[in-house]
Nucleic acid binder design. Structure first.
Lengths: 185, 185
DNA sequence: TCCATGATTGACTAATCACTCCACAAATGT
DNA sequence: ACATTTGTGGAGTGATTAGTCAATCATGGA
């Protein structure tokens, strides 16, 4: 019923499969089951749609990753929860992940609205708090963050390309957190 | 003098700046200082050009990374050399790295010629040899490989975004290898 | 000198695509 | 009941672009 959502979903699907250039707006409208003009009623330009999808995904990820965090969790507990949640999100939302990758390594990155940039501030702050509490190694928080994200990315990619039982996956995920934790402490 | 190289360089530059979609072949020809038709004399299609650039970069990286390797180096020495060379390549060839990222997260990946896929086999074999010699942890070699590459990527990104003295860079690079080595052994 | 081969040119084209426009429908307010 | 806003449709348009082609130019061998 919600045509805007239909358009977003159709566009997400087609963009991940055929790329931004490879999918005309007409195909998006067709896939979403709306008319060509309707698409431009909701999104003034194709670029705006491309950015909107990214913003939507980021919002979902942000919610998903932080929903289990308790204020009185220890640093390690918090980090563990963030890590696990992010990894699971990546596994469950392969298409969205691929979209984000494509988006971030395209010239559209420069169109990200400012208010979204601060999203990952919570994690940076957690790292800084961890350093203050002397549980995390004294290095620039951005460096630690960079290491963690890329590790996350690597594990995700491995899990997504190899196929394995859910049990093996769980084991791998937990082990990989311990690996990262050992590295940053 | 070599117009084919001129075209490749011009295309690399424009594609990294404006994306595949955002740069028309006419602009590439212009930047390369050749006529429109000349471009299509060397590359049958725009897609072929896009893939050719990737292949060229991969060739350079492959050469750069393996040129210092000696057959009688220890596993750790070999790994260290690979790691350092790859990191330096990424620092010295920011544009090429960005191109590779953009390419790999685009639908053009599926056009990579088969003979190129085996490129990273040498590193996988090194890891397997390391496992046999009991210096590297017993995990699937592809997993270890995935962890190393993504770590490399993360460090690279950090170095490229922050600016720091060359001395600090060197220190960071060496420390980061020890971090990875600790992780995989 | 003459020919052959391949490089080089740039005007041209057929197709595509982002976006507009306007008519109409549905919802919402008064 | 009427007016106003909001949503929806889809044909149409102007600009852009990948790729073509026929003509020229450069090189070198016979």
């Amino acid at each position: 019923m919600d045509k805007q959502k239909d358009i977003l979903n159709a566009a997400l699907k087609l963009f991940t499969e055929f790329g931004f250039h490879g999918t005309p707006t007409s195909k998006i409208a067709q896939e979403a089951g709306v008319a060509n003009g309707t698409l431009f009623h909701y999104f003034k330009t194709k670029d705006e749609l491309i950015v909107a999808i990214y913003v939507e995904i980021k919002k979902q990820l942000g919610f998903c990753v932080s929903k289990d965090i308790q204020p009185d969790d220890s640093i390690k507990e918090t980090a563990h929860k963030y890590y696990i949640a992010a990894l699971h999100w990546g596994i469950d939302n392969e298409m969205e992940l691929r979209y984000v990758q494509q988006f971030l390594s395209s010239p559209y990155v420069s169109m990200i609205p400012k208010e979204l940039v601060e999203q990952s501030l919570a994690i940076i702050n957690m790292i800084k708090e961890g350093i203050k509490q002397k549980v995390i190694k004294v290095t620039p928080a951005e460096y630690t963050m960079s290491i963690i994200s890329s590790h996350l990315y690597g594990v995700n990619q491995y899990i997504n390309t190899q196929q394995m039982s859910t049990a093996k996956q769980k084991q791998l995920i937990n082990e990989s957190f311990e690996l990262v934790w050992k590295m940053i402490t």
